[in-house]
């Protein structure tokens, strides 16, 4: 069971959280302007990174908030957690 550092509440055990998939996928403002291929990219195609992965978690059994995290999927170690709408911390990105 991982320990996850909620940017709002601090470190809590994984059981309080729900994983919410790849981060920084922004729903297009006007989906009707996308062709089927581009829409499918948004809907389904995922980086599935082996290594440092930007992903979303929700502190579902805590504050209820979604937030972003950088986690190394080869070790499950978190490099950083950060709020929705903010960019990944540069230092952690460099840690790749």
């Amino acid at each position: 069971m991982l320990i996850i550092d909620c940017p709002y509440c601090g470190k809590r055990p994984e059981l309080e959280f729900a994983y919410a998939g790849q981060a920084h996928l922004v729903r297009p403002r006007d989906p009707s302007t996308l062709d089927d291929e581009a829409w499918a990219q948004f809907l389904y195609m995922r980086a599935n990174t082996r290594g440092m992965h930007a992903e979303r978690w929700r502190h579902a059994r805590g504050c209820g908030r979604f937030f972003n995290a950088l986690r190394d999927t080869t070790s499950d170690r978190f490099a950083a957690t950060y709020r929705i709408g903010t960019a990944p911390p540069v230092a952690a990105e460099d840690a790749r």
């Binding site: 069971m1 991982l2 992903e55």
Partner: peptide, 13 residues
């Protein structure tokens, strides 16, 4: 497990 991972191990719970 709930999250993507390449570690070839999962959680105790």
């Amino acid at each position: 497990d709930a999250y993507t991972s390449y570690t070839q191990r999962g959680a105790l719970h």
